[in-house]
């Protein structure tokens, strides 16, 4: 290390062998988010009303419940990756570990609640 060419020095240092994963999954979920959130925006615009009966009827339909489930998985995965980078930029050492743990708990708890709510409406009786 240190006496060869630039590329030789880089190879000598090696990598963690997993850095590309985070980057790639952020892009994959960005792509799926684009489709799913645009569907959601148009679904909201086209809803007949925003009262309880209207939104409940809308979410009961599989054509709304399934994309909604996919949206929660894709979007929550994406924001977990994004907030991780933000935390890594501004927090260090123990605080960083604590913040990442908190982020994981927040993501899993909110995702579970959202998925349960969607399934409850989709499998439940009509209001």
């Amino acid at each position: 290390m240190g006496s060869g060419t630039h590329i030789g020095r880089v190879r000598g240092l090696g990598s963690a062998k997993e850095g590309a994963h985070h980057w790639w999954r952020q892009r994959v979920t960005a792509g799926s988010n684009l489709f799913l959130t645009l569907w959601f925006v148009f679904a909201i615009l086209r809803m007949p009303g925003y009262d309880y009966a209207s939104v409940h009827t809308w979410l009961q339909n599989g054509w709304a419940a399934v994309p909604m489930l996919l949206l929660v998985v894709s979007v929550f995965y994406h924001f977990r990756l994004g907030l991780q980078v933000v935390i890594e930029d501004y927090q260090h050492e123990q605080k960083r570990v604590a913040a990442i743990l908190l982020l994981n708990f927040f993501t899993v708890a909110t995702a579970a609640t959202a998925i349960f709510a969607i399934l409850k409406v989709a499998f439940g009786a009509a209001a």
Partner: peptide, 12 residues
């Protein structure tokens, strides 16, 4: 996220 989860939970 809080808004979306609140909205879905409220519907449920």
């Amino acid at each position: 996220t809080v808004l979306l989860v609140w909205w879905l939970a409220a519907i449920a």
